[in-house]
Structure formats: C-alpha cells, structure tokens
Simulated scan of single mutants.
Amino acid sequence: MPRLESSIKGHLSPVLKSDGFFGSGRTFRRISEEHIHVVQVQGSRYGSKFAVNLGIQPRSIPDVVGNSPDATKIREELCEFRRRMSEATSDQWWEYEASNESMDAAVQAAASVYKAIGRRLFSELSGAESPLHKVTPGQFEAGQYSFSGFGSTKVRMARSLALMRQSIGDLVNANAFARIALASLGNASALRAELEELCRATES
C-alpha cells in the first residue's frame, strides 16, 4: 500500500535537510539562534490530500501550552507563530491518488512551493532584522507591520512579543505589549491573571 511518508522521505525531506532541518515522518525542525522553525505535513481527515504548515517558536518564551520549547519534539501547532504554506491563497492543499506516482508528484509540487515560498517566509522572520524583534508596540497596535502571514490571535501575539522583550531586558516595550494584550483580552479570562502579572513585572 503506498504511503505518503515514503514520498515525503524521497522528495521533501532532502530539500528540508539541505536547509538544516532534521526530522522524519511528517514533521521537520530547524534550530536557529533565536527561533525554532517547524515544517509539518498535515493530512486531510478525509484523505487524498495534504497541506504544509509552518511554525516559528521563539526559543526565549514558552510554547502555546506553556512549556519550555523542546526543539527535538515541538510540533507546528505548539508554535506561537504559525501559517499555512501556499502560493497565492491562505489554504492550499495538494491532492493525490492512492499510487506512488501520484503521491510523489504531489509531494514534489509541495517541495517546489517550499523552495520558492517557504524558504523566503522563514528568512523574512529570521535574524536581527526580523519584524518579530523590530516591531514597536505602536506599530503593532496600529496594524503597521508584517509577519509574513505568521501569527495567531492579537492577544497571543502581543503576549509573545511582551515575553520576548522581557527576555532581553527591554521592560518598557515588554510592558507596552503586555498592556495591549490585556486590553485586547475581552471576555477571555484564561490569560488575564498571567497578563496582569506580566504588566506588574515589567513596570519601570
């Protein structure tokens, strides 16, 4: 019986590993100085197609469930900044039939999109000039920034940016991002105590 993992091993894995990713099956990870990058193939619950999800997790802050990020185990859904890899739309899927040839063709097509688009997306958010490091609270609040499609909710992104600034001792901007997160919380109470404590801890 043909398996998608075999096609991934043959056609996507070598491309990712040439870029410094490690892993097997459907999940691959790369460690940079400040971030963990994740590429994860997501199969459809109905079968016969897959998508490719990308994740960026700052190493200085907890993952989505509050754990210290483990670069050898983290999955895309645990990263604070995530997006679907696509050429033109926000939701691209590659369809295949139950044959090695069809699966190979679909994975080769996805690998081509990674080479043309995925590499660039990771690059745009990497290094000292990454907007994750450069965006100011005012720019974030006004929506005057681009994370190349990576993100989550406004609350979680502001919280993540606050924690990142706190980790480097930038308490003024950490506090400002924490207050943006708190003001955007609405009726969601799960993070309220944490954000209030973060505001107190970063007051100058």
Score class of each variant (00 low, 15 high):
E95P: 07
T89N: 15
M103Y: 01
K73L: 09
N67Y: 10
N100S: 12
Q92E: 15
R82W: 04
W93R: 14
T89D: 15
P62Q: 07
E95G: 09
M85E: 03
P69N: 05
C79F: 02
M103R: 10
F81K: 03
S99T: 15
D70Q: 01
A88Y: 14
M85N: 03
I61Y: 02
Y96I: 05
D70S: 03
R82I: 04
I61K: 00
M103I: 02
E101H: 04
R82A: 01
Y96L: 07
A98R: 15
R82K: 15
S99K: 09
A71M: 12
E80M: 10
D91N: 14
N67V: 03
N67Q: 12
S90W: 11
I61Q: 00
E87F: 09
E76D: 09
S68R: 13
Q92I: 08
V65M: 10
A88I: 13
S102Y: 00
S99I: 02
E97Y: 12
N100Y: 11
K73R: 12
P62T: 01
A98F: 13
E76Q: 10
I61A: 03
I74F: 03
D70G: 01
R82F: 08
A88D: 11
F81W: 04
N67W: 08
I61T: 05
E76S: 06
E95H: 13
W93P: 05
D63S: 06
R82Y: 06
I61P: 04
D104F: 00
E101I: 03
W94I: 07
I74T: 04
L78H: 10
D91R: 13
S68K: 14
S99D: 03
E87Q: 11
E101L: 08
E95S: 13
F81S: 06
E101V: 08
Q92T: 10
A98L: 14
V64T: 13
Y96D: 02
D70R: 01
A88W: 12
S86P: 05
